[in-house]
Design a protein around this nucleic acid. Structure first.
Length: 105
DNA sequence: CAACTGACGATAG
DNA sequence: CCTATCGCCAGTT
């Protein structure tokens, strides 16, 4: 079942520092598969509530939340704002300020 | 083993 | 900005 990839992804997500966000591509890349961004999303669905994953810190490459406005979008946005992550008027996150510099750790 | 599924990404128009 | 398409990969059925 849990191939090392999935485990690594969960591990990485847990390491995202408060006040920072990461993209699916980033996580997938860091986990060893630059093209497995979909699995990252899938894993979030699979175990965001089971493990204590800060799923709200994971966004898409556009700097936006992928969830529909009636399916968690507002909740995720609220959680991020509580951590000090603000959105611009296009509802996008400013990568220069909030993107997790994953290779610095 | 085959088909299907995704909270994606990049590209093309 | 938008939609349409294809690629990619792990996990399910």
């Amino acid at each position: 079942m849990t191939s090392s990839f999935s485990k690594r992804v969960k591990d990485i997500i847990k390491k995202i520092p408060t006040g920072k966000v990461a993209t699916y591509g980033q996580i997938a890349t860091y986990a060893g598969n630059p093209r497995a961004s979909r699995q990252v999303a899938w894993i979030l669905h699979s175990s965001s509530g089971k493990d204590n994953l800060p799923w709200h810190r994971v966004i898409n490459s556009k700097g936006r939340i992928s969830l529909p406005h009636n399916g968690g979008y507002e909740m995720q946005k609220g959680l991020l704002e509580e951590e000090g992550i603000l959105f611009d008027k296009n509802d996008r996150i400013n990568f220069d300020r909030y993107l997790w510099q994953i290779f610095e750790e």
